[in-house]
Write a protein that binds this DNA or RNA. Structure first.
Lengths: 153, 153
DNA sequence: CAATATTACTTGTGAAATGCAAGTGATTTA
DNA sequence: TAAATCACTTGCATTTCACAAGTAATATTG
């Protein structure tokens, strides 16, 4: 039994960054991988090379479900597989993820030629629209490779 | 001696969400408070009601400095006071913070009338410009009250 | 159809981070 | 000069995390 989180304070009109769910090392990475790398299964997350521990991954997936950010469904054709998908609420994090990607690219750059970054900044809207279109179609082809390279447009 | 973080993996072209710095419960809250609540001192962070532990706050401020996101300077008029400010790099997180605020407001809403949310979404650019203008002027008047309420425009 | 493989986890253990209460040292104010 | 303020640090109990190993359910292979 995990026990309740001990009741957190909340201010009046709740325009607050809500980092109770997203304020950890992995949640946003999982969301990004669902959003732009086309990840769907537990195994993909584990072997993505980011190094999340298996028990922590399981915990995060559970929490993200409980928060209504992702849903899990067992694949009809193969009862072993569980496919994770973003909900509408989860997809609405796309602007956050995009801005984080842009910021990270601008400052965490280890030097590789990333002309793509300028394109991301200039075409925020189109990219967000594309991500959402693929989400609706359940199209899991990645916009971003495992290496981080962008496959867009 | 804290010891090195044990070397994290990095992919080739580094377009990655870099959550090594921001992937915790407090960093983005500190940045938001500097950005839109006009916080400047240690004490303000401590007594903001968010409940960050004092040792953790000290640690985060140190890490954010080391990452070049904030700077600390002792106040000339009062040698006890240390004022924290965002760097350019820190200010460039404004779009991230704004999108998080919008998302949080949309979904974490406990019900209060927040017509302001729509305004934030419609006037992203103006708000970002305003935040940056105040930052340049070192104007610490908050855009967002402690309660979360927006004082803008 | 039995043996093996795959997938999605859980469990156990030590290390690290966190939360809390109390204390410290450098100023500044009364 | 004593008290107050500010920005921290220290110690300790609790929680979370990382790593390795194991398990249960389904699927594939021979």
């Amino acid at each position: 039994m995990p026990g309740k989180p001990k009741s957190k304070r909340r201010s009046g009109c709740p325009v607050n960054i809500s980092l109770e769910m997203l304020g950890d090392r992995w949640s946003l990475l999982i969301i990004r991988d669902l959003m732009v790398r086309g990840f769907r299964t537990y195994k993909e997350f584990q072997s993505s090379g980011e190094g999340i521990a298996t028990n922590v991954l399981a915990g995060r997936l559970r929490k993200l479900q409980a928060a209504g950010i992702i849903v899990a469904e067992v694949e009809a054709a193969d009862g072993r597989r569980v496919n994770y998908r973003l909900t509408e609420k989860g997809m609405d994090l796309a602007p956050v993820v995009l801005e984080l990607l842009i910021w990270g690219a601008r400052y965490d750059d280890t030097g590789a030629s990333c002309a793509m970054i300028g394109k991301l900044e200039k075409h925020r809207k189109e990219l967000l629209a594309e991500v959402r279109r693929r989400w609706r179609k359940r199209d899991a082809t990645p916009l971003q490779a495992k290496s981080g390279e962008w496959l867009w447009p």
